[in-house]
Design a protein around this nucleic acid. Structure first.
Lengths: 245, 245, 245, 245
DNA sequence: GATGAATGAGATTTCATTCAT
DNA sequence: AATGAATGAAATCTCATTCAT
């Protein structure tokens, strides 16, 4: 899947804008946002610094534009994939793979960018809900939400499951795992295997069947038993010590 | 639980060092690493810039020291909690709460710092394995790993579960969810409820072979019970012998 | 002879660059390299500090540029003078005067700059041969070498004389003597007298085999005379032929 | 010959002072004056920074002390050598070798130090005559002067020779030549050979005999002749060119 | 006498942004 | 629309020197 080239720029203006975006994307990904000067971006894009600021008023604007592009593609690809597959589990697999693929294809740029953006340039937790990135992310994750809700409606997923939590596990798990994945050489199949390994337990916990014995209680007995055993063990140990004296 | 105050600084040197660390921690948390100048840190700590660099050769050194401190506390509290509780599920609940608590107590500093550190100042994915933070994180997550492995040994967790994936879901989910949590006013119980909501599906998916018998009582570990009984009998016998003396 | 004004700057850029170079030259000369801040240079040149670094990436680059300019002028003037005079002794006199003149005209800057450069900023004796200043100096002293070699070829200088040693005496003596000269008020004729006083013994020691016949007329180069006479006769013959046509 | 150890420090105070001097000497030599911080000197000397400034009020004081020591040794060794040898030429050879040896033994320190001192920290040419280093150097070069004067008195050196000029050639030549010597691997004999090569022409030019044909005139005839030849040559060449047309 | 923590002025360099051309 | 020279504020870090202990 081709990235920024997708919207083929036709006019000279669009070409320039695209050049700048691509150059900035590559440099941000390689060196990080703060370690990349606008001068270098301009140089890499083959334009003057003045021109760069002619297209993007601010370095932050540039970052925002990159994020916009990225999310636009992410959202589009996610929607397409979800529309093409009907099975809920397959849809989740697709979303996960697509998510990782997009992140990695951009040389992990996005993860870094988003983090930097969230962590440094915005006061993230202060005004997250008003930030433009919140909006992007919201629109993106709604696709996931839709899949889950449809799965519930169809009876594949137990309906009392808390959606936000599944969402956190899904995206959080994927991005956390990406660290491990990226620090090694990885192939396409490696990603696929990893994703399947992650969806499997998630899927289990979503199953309607698993809800049958209402969890809460089902988990209690062995714990209770375990606790009692442990207590007895402790007593036994104490007795042993005393015995040795 | 109190943070840097824990190791109460006694000498004047330690006091100063602690002052600087605290000031830097707060500022980094509020404004981000790159938006906080050493001058402001020095000012906030009540020392001159020269003094700051007398204690920490580099702004990065300062960051490193903060991370070291944070992880040291995190690791210690995690170990203590795990040692105090025997039940696997309870342990996971504790680890999750502890993780969130630590992150939030530091004004979400650490998450941001770590991200910045990973994303910007290091070339994260390039030399992650050699970075000092990798080591810290490794030592921390091994505690989680230990809990899971012990759970498997005891029969509470199906042994074919892939540990790295559970780990990614656990920590990734927590940190991803933290965004939501922090953007609202939250109370202690809110965290607790959130954590329990997250552990519940995770725990389910860990249960022994949920695929075959629909979970529930299948989680019973009969051998464990048998072993404990046998041991108790042995102890009883020994006690009987002692009683005969 | 005017220094940086020589290549009259036409464009605004060249003008600025020249301003900066001149300001830096003057300040370095007055206060020394390490005691002159870039801020003061910028101020003296009437530009902002940012502009200064726009033209010269580094304070050292600036120094290098000054040295380049100086040597370029030195080399050019030396070549011109040598080309304009045929007599070896006159050439040496010229080179010596020119050397001192250039050094003094630049407010003794160059001697100081070069020394500082050699002594402090480079590890002089460690990588002298690879330093850019070595190259400049080499190109300059080759002019002297050429004069000496030609003097040998013409029979005015005894050929067994060791060129490096004469070179050391020549330039070393001049620069060492400059200290004395500069600490007093000096006029043009004073320099001239000093130079003549220095060339006199040097020249004597270069004369052909001063050891054998007590010098003086021994310096006569009979073969040179013979060769020239022969050549003149040949030319005369040819002219005669032409006249017969 | 041992350098700073010569005045064997007895008291603890003297030992410390000597330690500091030695450390500073080595570091200045290796890294240059401005690139060596007092902190590093203190560290290398095994004392605290406070102590360093207890012994030497100023970094410049330290430099001055080093120079004092160096010159003291230089002067002493020069005096001893001159006293031990009677022949004028031998004395000059000794002085030259001794000069180079001392310079090189100190890792070329002194040359660099003096240059730095002269070039940067003092406004050398402004108040050279009042500077302490002028005094040291004056006392040192007077030894050379004495040798020359005695040589004149004994009839070995022509009396009309200008002493300052010979002095400049002698010391200037030596120090200029040192650059070449130090940038290669050199042995003791290499220095000796170099010095002899340099004294030879110098000595010739000092000879009383060379004065017999009063130089000035003696040098004229061949020059005059040369000029005439050159002129004739030029005319001949022009004629030849015309002839070829 | 010895220490080394503390200082604060200052040094070089970077950078996003502006604006005259 | 495009340029790139110009800016000046700010950033990190160094350093000789002082002084309380």
């Amino acid at each position: 899947m081709n990235k920024p080239e997708r919207n083929k720029p036709r006019t000279r203006l669009e070409q320039r804008e695209s050049d700048i975006l691509q150059a900035a994307t590559a440099l941000f990904a390689d060196e990080g946002f703060h370690n990349t000067s606008t001068r270098r971006i301009a140089g890499a894009a083959g334009v003057s610094e003045g021109t760069l600021f002619h297209y993007f008023n601010t370095k932050n604007t540039l970052l925002q534009a990159i994020l916009d592009d990225f999310y636009a593609q992410l959202i589009e690809s996610a929607r397409e994939g979800v529309a093409a597959v009907m099975d809920t589990r397959e849809r989740l697999l697709f979303l996960a793979k697509n998510h990782l693929r997009a992140l990695m294809e951009n040389q992990a740029l996005m993860m870094r960018l988003i983090q930097v953006y969230l962590s440094v340039d915005l006061n993230y937790y202060r005004d997250y809900r008003n930030s433009p990135i919140h909006d992007l992310n919201y629109r993106y994750t709604r696709i996931f939400d839709g899949v889950i809700k449809e799965g519930m409606a169809r009876g594949y997923i137990r309906p009392e499951l808390e959606l936000p939590i599944v969402r956190d596990l899904f995206f959080g798990g994927l991005e956390y795992g990406m660290r491990t994945l990226m620090s090694r050489q990885y192939g396409k199949d490696r990603i696929a295997r990893y994703v399947e390994g992650m969806i499997e337990p998630l899927w289990q916990s979503m199953q309607a069947s698993a809800a049958a014995p209402p969890a809460g209680n089902a988990a209690l007995p062995p714990d209770r038993l375990e606790q009692t055993c442990a207590r007895l063990e402790r007593i036994a140990e104490r007795l042993e010590k005393q015995g040795k004296r």
